[in-house]
Nucleic acid binder design. Structure first.
Lengths: 121, 121
DNA sequence: TCACCATATCGTAATATAGAAATATAATAA
DNA sequence: TTATTATATTTCTATATTACGATATGGTGA
């Protein structure tokens, strides 16, 4: 129904959330990793992930002390997979998205324990 | 690029604008007709159409004293046609959209001159 | 040419939303 | 069991956005 469609559309209408979704196309990551790549504070990243999760675009699991997020591959409502599909065919050449993915490659080289633990920012 | 994608996504993130786009799937209509179907004031409808036009999702032409809007079928940016395509496969069973289309059938039976002229509201 | 019409645009008020600080919560680690 | 960690949630501020009334604009009709 229309409400669900609007929820999906709004979820992909924010730059930060699109960046998150494009990163999650590469795999599954925890809040800390996304914070580092996006250069944003924990509450911001967490809030955006919440919106994406509510929209059915991402799913999460607990792994040790971390929560890992990944793209959803289940039909949650009528449109979530449609939007993810559209997104996967877009933005391949976007400079910001490419920057993020470059940074991602650096981040995944680090053990998540090391990245997340030294809160010495 | 990302900016264009966000503009598209925001354009289809509003209920009123989605309703307009679904109506325009049926053909080309002027602001007066859309006002009647949607039950909204002229400035509201006009403003939404402006956003859709800027996003490259609709096009318009002047016909007499009227301005007629229709869905765009030109590639204006990287994503307009993708979004229109997604939308065309969605919401077929939505009750509000069906209501609007039923109302549309009544409206198109009336000569646009008769509908628009008697501003006696 | 002037009057009128259709609609684009501006201004206002109400509501929604993003980013971050502060706090609460759930779970793990010691 | 208690301390610590990761993150969800709340609160706040600034900004964005919607609907409508008022006004400006472009064009047609008389």
């Amino acid at each position: 129904m229309l409400r669900d469609f609007i929820i999906q559309a709004k979820a992909v209408s924010d730059e930060t959330r699109v960046r998150i979704l494009k990163l999650l196309e590469e795999g599954e990551f925890c809040v800390c990793q996304l914070m580092d790549i996006l250069g944003m504070k924990q509450s911001t990243v967490s809030k955006h992930l919440g919106i994406l999760k509510t929209a059915g675009l991402v799913e999460c699991r607990k792994g040790g002390t971390w929560t890992f997020y990944r793209l959803s591959n289940n039909l949650i409502n009528n449109y979530n997979l449609d939007f993810l599909k559209l997104l996967s065919s877009c933005l391949k050449d976007d400079s910001l998205i490419q920057q993020d993915k470059k940074k991602l490659r650096e981040v995944v080289k680090q053990d998540v324990k090391i990245l997340c633990t030294p809160k010495g920012e």
